[in-house]
Amino acid sequence: MNSLSVVIELAVSGLVIGCVYALVAWGFTIVFNATGLVNFAAGELVMMGGVISATLHTRFALQPIVTVPLTVIVVAAVSAATDRYFLQKARRQVHMTLVMITIGLAIGLRGAMLFLTGKDFQFPPPFSEFEFPPILGINLSTQGVWVICAVAVMTGVLWWLFAKTWLGYSMRASGENPRAAQLMGVSPRWVSNLSFALAGAMGALAGTLIAPLASANYASGLYFGVKGFSAAVLGGLGSPVGAVVGGLLLGLIESFAAGYVSSGWKDAIALGLLILVLLLMPSGLFGRRATRV
């Protein structure tokens, strides 16, 4: 029960939840980069990841190896559909209108999930049953390791996507200058669809990863949306690196504030620091562009 093990336990706990925040923050960032839009339904995508994978398990007795990819695909498709059939039809509207539409979509998705998956809190099984032996007196939760590994892998994948592939270039180009990108043969509409699909996949992954630890429930979208958005803003909206840094930082601050200062004040401390950062660096830690409202 020494203080080193406490520090490590708090750090691990903070990292795990920080990774989940990072995934949600990526959802915001990718969409923002490609379309300039803040998608306030991002939290609901996380919620859907959780409840759909949990329901697939309870109703059809499918194992995580099946439910997780299936859920990610379904939610990515739903997210792309919300873009194609709702947001793109309103593309000529004022920005504020588009934001309101995403909020409306969030409410609609929440209602749909209540109807389809019920009101209960579901705890689906962890991805693997293997239990780590205690290291230095600390018990690592297997699911926590999955979370961290998944985000580490995704970091690599996203970096490769945006830095090395034509697809990534198109998305970045379309975000910076849609007209020029169009002239170069990139379809902004298609890029927009793809970015929403990718954001849906990120969110769903976050949802399936956290559900065994924290439960899946139709009402949890707002909570994740707020945390993910705060993480994205902290790191700098528009910066994928910022999203990861922001997410991990937010998770760690929450965990250490609860562990060493006061558990009742942890959210106030974490968000207070966010405000402080924004006062000093309005674009966030890694942000490059100002957000248009």
């Binding site: 706990s13 939840i17 630890l213 949890s220 562990g259």
Partner: peptide
Amino acid sequence: ILEQFDRQDTDMTAQVLRARQ
């Protein structure tokens, strides 16, 4: 000894550690 958390919080390890301490 009082430790608090938000009803929707996903991890209470910090609070449990404080209780243990």
